[in-house]
Amino acid sequence: MASGKAKTEKIMTSREKILAAVKESQPELTPLPNLDLFYQNIDTPEQNLTNFISIVERIGAKVYQVQDYPQVMNQLKEDFDLAGKRVVSAVRELDAMVDEYKGSNNHELADVELMILPTHFAVAENGACWVNDELYQERLLPFIPQHLAFILKKENIVPTLHQAYELIADKSYGFGAFIAGPSKTADIEQSLVLGAHCPRSLRIFVMNLSF
């Protein structure tokens, strides 16, 4: 019988073997916890904005509060010397002012100096903005430029990640990311350096359209 058993095991795929071993080994079913308490948050939009700005500044990014798109461009021109540099945007309202990326080989984005992108919403407790491929097909856009600017609508700031996941609970995306601040590393003796592989700086333009 022993040889018979070995034979059966041999023809089992790894998938079957693993699933069988898991079934055999897993403990008795325990329930999922109730998470209601995490969704009770009474912070006002103003508080969310204040918290968001304070965290964003702590993680090495910068917030500007603006009323319209020309203000965004004026601020960026003030902050950067963009002469001869490539600026790309996926914000429709800015198309008249900058290059628009329409390519299909994303390696062509390697020389982008400044990228200006819309965001879905942001999270006050950690300063992260959520973006996904519903906003722009090319996933590489927020990662490859030297500098990044996000456009965020003022009313789209939620207090914590719990509310954030409520907003995307039933969304279907191919790729999405929370992005909090510029790319960074502290691998060398815990010294913080901004600009590891991705953007060296992040500016977030909080837009107040409801004036």
């Binding site: 950690n126 992260a128 279907s172 191919g174 790319s183 991705c198």
Partner: peptide, 23 residues
Amino acid sequence: RLLTRSATGQPITTYSSHFAKPA
């Protein structure tokens, strides 16, 4: 919420990338 606060004291890592479908 738990991971990066426990790891480095940051509120979240710079990038939390959700991969669902191939591009």
